[in-house]
Nucleic acid binder design. Structure first.
Lengths: 173, 173
DNA sequence: AACGCATATTTCACCAGTGAACGAAGTATG
DNA sequence: CATACTTCGTTCACTGGTGAAATATGCGTT
């Protein structure tokens, strides 16, 4: 695949030319959106690459991590959908896959018989504990040359943008 | 779907708890990656939402934009693959779709008969000129409250991260 | 000029994610 | 207490994207 910086300079030139043709275009904002999209998906691809050897995809990994991070190691499909930003359909498949591998269990909830209780198994915990640490070095390397202030600033700006996006959301028409 | 800031605080808590259990985890870096991924894909979703009424998906839109921004309005599948970060397989389908709608044409290249020359049509240009401007307001709104320095800084940090990602890339094993 | 090798695009089979519809369980209303 | 409405999870059919092989052209060597 092509280097990220190549795509970025292509994008820069393209938007530069567009700016001259299309008056009124918010060029800087468009640039930032493209950057966000490119870097964001590249980060995800990088993650998926590290997950492939474990035969996990991104959504399964995220689901497993949420369960792992829970003090009681359990949740429900609906909640997992919400926090992984996945549709219920997909969560069903994810839960199927993880159950099949013995990393989680699915059982009926006592309080509300509509709900399903999903719980990480001891094997699931061991799996996470084993696969996670090898990822740390590359994760750190990604931010090589970033000062503490840089990281803080990046976090601040991304959260600010996220707030704007939430506020913006309603656009069904 | 669930608000972005909800997912973010979930993620913050989750990584917070993880940091206590998993010693040596680069928590801040992990947080930034998750943020990048979430905000990036949210931006893409926002774009796709705006494209849906025009019956375009993200890749088709990007392809069309590249062609539009070219002085001569033309390119080749290979080049488009490179700059859209799409596989050749997909580019074939994209070109099929855009050709069918009369927005581009496909013809043999004169210099290298292996190559295919893709060119935006006048109808394609009109289409872009019509669909683009209505997107500007929301695009600007996304960065409401961002100072010029904020935008500059966000751009700088994303580009820096992109460079690191390129440098990092080789990890096939 | 004929052979093998490299490159560009397409075709095919498959995978992950999505929207619509369904059945089961709960909740509210007359 | 019966009927309608809601919520939760699953199933199914479809879309967008990917990897491996097929096809076609060009390039370099002998």
């Amino acid at each position: 695949m092509s280097r990220l910086s190549t795509c970025i300079s292509m994008m820069d030139e393209g938007i530069g030319r567009m700016g001259q043709i299309m008056p009124g275009m918010p060029g800087e904002e468009a640039r930032l959106c493209r950057l966000l999209a490119m870097v964001g998906s590249h980060v995800l691809e990088e993650l998926e690459r590290k997950l492939k050897p474990h035969k996990l995809n991104h959504s399964e990994f995220l689901t497993l991590m949420i369960l792992y991070s829970r003090p009681d190691g359990s949740s429900t499909p609906g909640e997992l959908c919400e926090f992984t930003s996945q549709g219920a359909t997909n969560m069903t498949r994810i839960a199927n896959a993880l159950t099949q591998r013995g990393l989680i269990t699915r059982g009926a909830s006592r309080e509300d018989r509509r709900r399903v209780q999903i719980r990480i198994t001891p094997a699931g915990r061991r799996f996470v504990q084993k696969m996670l640490p090898p990822m740390f070095p590359r994760l750190s390397a990604m931010y090589e040359g970033f000062t503490a202030a840089d990281k803080r600033e990046l976090g601040r700006l991304l959260r600010k943008l996220a707030d704007n996006l939430d506020r913006l959301e309603p656009l069904p028409p």
